[in-house]
Simulated scan of single mutants.
Amino acid sequence: MHIDIDKDVCIGAGQCALAAPNVFTQDDDGYSELLPGSGDGAEDPMVRQAARSCPVSAITVRDSAG
């Protein structure tokens, strides 16, 4: 799984961090970022829900090409 956060689109709503707090956090400016050490988030079943909850669709989740 690959998670991409478009920082140019992110408005810092924080819905991703609420939905998947083991994968997402907010930086000092309030914008979403992946938690250090969270890898690609594949183990967290809420990653896709977090992406869907983003009000501006700043998060893209893709399956890794294998």
Rank of each mutant, 00 (worst) to 15 (best):
M1G: 11
M1P: 14
M1L: 10
I3A: 06
I3L: 08
I3C: 06
I5D: 00
D6M: 00
D6S: 03
D6Q: 01
D6E: 04
K7G: 02
K7H: 10
V9S: 02
V9G: 01
V9E: 04
V9Q: 06
V9R: 09
C10K: 00
I11M: 12
G12Q: 01
G12S: 04
A13K: 06
A13N: 06
A13S: 13
G14N: 09
G14R: 03
G14Q: 04
G14C: 06
G14F: 04
G14D: 11
Q15W: 12
Q15L: 13
C16L: 06
C16N: 03
C16W: 01
C16H: 01
A17P: 06
A17M: 09
L18W: 11
L18V: 15
A19T: 13
A19F: 05
A20D: 02
A20T: 03
A20K: 06
N22S: 13
N22Q: 14
N22Y: 09
V23R: 02
F24E: 03
F24L: 01
T25Y: 07
T25I: 05
D27F: 01
D27R: 00
D28L: 09
D29L: 10
D29P: 00
D29K: 08
G30H: 01
G30W: 02
G30R: 00
Y31M: 12
Y31P: 02
Y31K: 11
Y31I: 01
S32E: 02
S32N: 05
S32W: 02
S32G: 14
E33A: 09
E33I: 09
E33D: 08
E33V: 07
L34H: 02
P36Y: 13
P36S: 13
G37Q: 04
G37S: 07
G37A: 05
G37Y: 03
S38E: 05
S38R: 08
G39Q: 01
G39N: 02
D40A: 02
D40Y: 02
G41P: 06
G41I: 05
A42C: 11
A42K: 12
E43Y: 15
E43G: 15
E43L: 15
E43H: 14
D44E: 11
D44G: 03
P45R: 05
P45G: 09
M46H: 14
M46Y: 13
M46S: 15
V47E: 09
R48K: 15
A50M: 09
A50R: 11
A50D: 00
A51L: 10
A51N: 08
R52T: 11
R52G: 08
R52K: 13
S53N: 15
C54W: 07
P55K: 01
P55E: 04
P55T: 03
P55A: 07
V56W: 10
V56K: 08
S57L: 14
A58Y: 08
A58W: 05
I59E: 04
I59M: 03
T60S: 13
T60V: 12
V61Q: 08
V61G: 09
V61P: 07
V61W: 06
V61F: 07
R62M: 12
S64F: 11
S64W: 10
S64E: 15
S64A: 15
S64Q: 14
S64P: 07
A65C: 12
